[in-house]
């Protein structure tokens, strides 16, 4: 059985107090508790402070380009659907640069888990605004305040076809690792949006701010109802951030609907040799 230490790579270089520490720990806890070791899963990292976890976490991994982790993850899953595939990305990475990929991964119900570090800013490029920042947020790239309204990751994912959408908080490692475990266990596309303070560049969405605005979904909350999940997710716009599984449903996953992948994984499939079947069409 693997331990937290087995998953630990280099010592993190995140700023002291960064929410990424909590996320990094929760990810490792979830993997250990699920009985994985660094050989048994694939992780794709985006570019940003979140993506820098690549060097702090041991696993078969790709440290991708900015925004492109989701298609990399889909490719890994299609080639070897027996490997659990997790994408660890940032808000600019996933909701900005790679927004189109997220939309279509939700539609496809690809069996991958996407964990988004949502801190409202671009930390690695020293504090420009991210797509999840509140309207009016002042940053280096928006000194007069951002004109756009924020993206709502929860309602976006739910209405685009994601079959598991959860939210957690970097300051609550126990809750977060529970959400990650549920997301990975879920068969289909799962998104975990992690609210995370950036202690260096976001002076608005601090630990104190989040502690004031987050709340855990009630025990009797029903995540299977599409419409009520959407209205629940819309509370984000009123600075009320629900934590927990906001939406969960079942729909056939992408790779299970491909005949070629019914018997075995794509990489294990035998070479096609019955050429008469295709050559005849050219005569």
């Amino acid at each position: 059985m693997a331990t937290l230490q087995d998953f630990s790579g280099y010592n993190p270089t995140w700023c002291p107090g960064c929410g990424d520490f909590g996320i990094g720990l929760s990810v490792k806890q979830a993997f250990v508790q699920m009985g994985y070791d660094p050989s048994s899963l694939a992780v794709v990292f985006g570019i940003g402070c979140s993506g820098n976890m690549n060097d702090f976490l041991n696993a078969y991994a790709i440290h991708s380009l900015h925004g492109r982790s989701i298609p990399n993850a889909i490719g890994i899953k299609l080639a070897n659907h027996k490997l659990p595939v997790v994408a660890i990305v940032g808000d600019g990475d996933c909701y900005g640069e790679g927004g189109n990929h997220l939309l279509h991964a939700c539609r496809g119900n690809h069996d991958i888990t996407v964990i988004v570090h949502d801190n409202g800013v671009y930390g690695l490029t020293t504090g420009q605004v991210a797509p999840t920042a509140e309207k009016g947020f002042k940053s280096k790239s928006t000194p007069a305040g951002i004109i756009e309204t924020p993206i709502n990751p929860l309602s976006f994912a739910i209405t685009s076809g994601a079959t598991f959408v959860a939210q957690s908080f970097a300051g609550d490692a126990a809750h977060l690792s529970m959400m990650i475990k549920e997301a990975i266990s879920h068969k289909g596309f799962s998104l975990v949006n992690v609210l995370q303070p950036c202690v260096t560049f976001n002076k608005v969405n601090t630990y104190q701010y989040y502690l004031k605005h987050i709340y855990k979904l009630a025990a009797d909350y029903d995540p299977s109802d599409f419409k009520s999940s959407v209205s629940k997710s819309l509370e984000m716009g009123e600075e009320k951030f629900p934590l927990g599984v906001v939406y969960k449903t079942e729909r056939p996953v992408y790779h299970e609907q491909i005949d070629a992948l019914h018997k075995d994984t794509l990489i294990k499939n035998k070479r096609f040799t019955d050429f008469d079947k295709i050559v005849g069409g050219f005569i």
Partner: peptide, 20 residues
């Protein structure tokens, strides 16, 4: 048939990484 060419090439990079 992916959503755009950026997804196209990155899906292929993912599957190739995994051995296909």
């Amino acid at each position: 048939h992916a959503e755009d060419e950026i997804s196209v090439v990155n899906t292929a990079i993912g599957s190739s990484f995994a051995g296909a």
